[in-house]
């Protein structure tokens, strides 16, 4: 066990855990930030996607010991009032069905748009192919990302 100081969603947190503990379980069990989801535990489904700095990463494969002072953003901290352009587009298109994978989808999409405000269809595909939606909302995810891109460019 060791003590780790983390910067999550703009605030400081201190947890004492086994250094191998994946960030997924640090967030969910120790910090009660349960918006980040467990789906597979082997980085195949994307449900646990968070931002490490500006990059989308699978938190099930990210041991707390390698995070150090890098900033972490989870779905709870993506925006203050749930009004990030990607969140707004998700609401406008009414994307979710069961909703379980959607936090991961939104975190992947928002990291993509942060790094590449005008992604091509192929670039969107490459980014989003790591996130499984078992309900099959992909066509709406596509529309929502396109809407977020358009809205981002307007503002």
């Amino acid at each position: 066990m060791a003590i780790f100081n983390l910067n999550i969603n703009g605030s400081e947190h201190s947890v004492e855990v086994d250094p191998n503990t994946p960030m997924l379980w640090v967030l969910r069990d120790h910090l009660k930030l349960v918006g980040t989801k467990y789906g597979c535990g082997i980085a195949q489904c994307g449900a646990c996607t968070i931002h490490l700095g500006n990059s989308a990463v699978r938190s099930c494969q990210l041991p707390i010991s390698v995070v150090a002072n890098q900033k972490i953003t989870t779905i709870e901290g993506l925006s203050e009032n749930g009004d990030h352009p990607v969140q707004k587009a998700w609401l406008e298109i009414d994307v979710p069905q069961c909703g379980y994978c959607q936090a991961g989808q939104i975190m992947t999409a928002s990291a993509l748009l942060n790094q590449n405000p005008n992604p091509s269809d192929t670039e969107i595909e490459t980014a989003m192919d790591g996130n499984i939606c078992r309900c099959g909302t992909y066509t709406r995810i596509k529309k929502a990302i396109q809407l977020a891109v358009a809205n981002q460019n307007l503002s």
Partner: peptide, 23 residues
């Protein structure tokens, strides 16, 4: 007349909703 899902705001902001989130 189409209405948006009443839980979408919670879904897109990561609020606890699912069994696995139960505290």
């Amino acid at each position: 007349k189409s209405k948006k899902s009443v839980e979408n705001q919670k879904i897109v902001t990561g609020k606890p909703l699912f069994g696995l989130d139960y505290q």
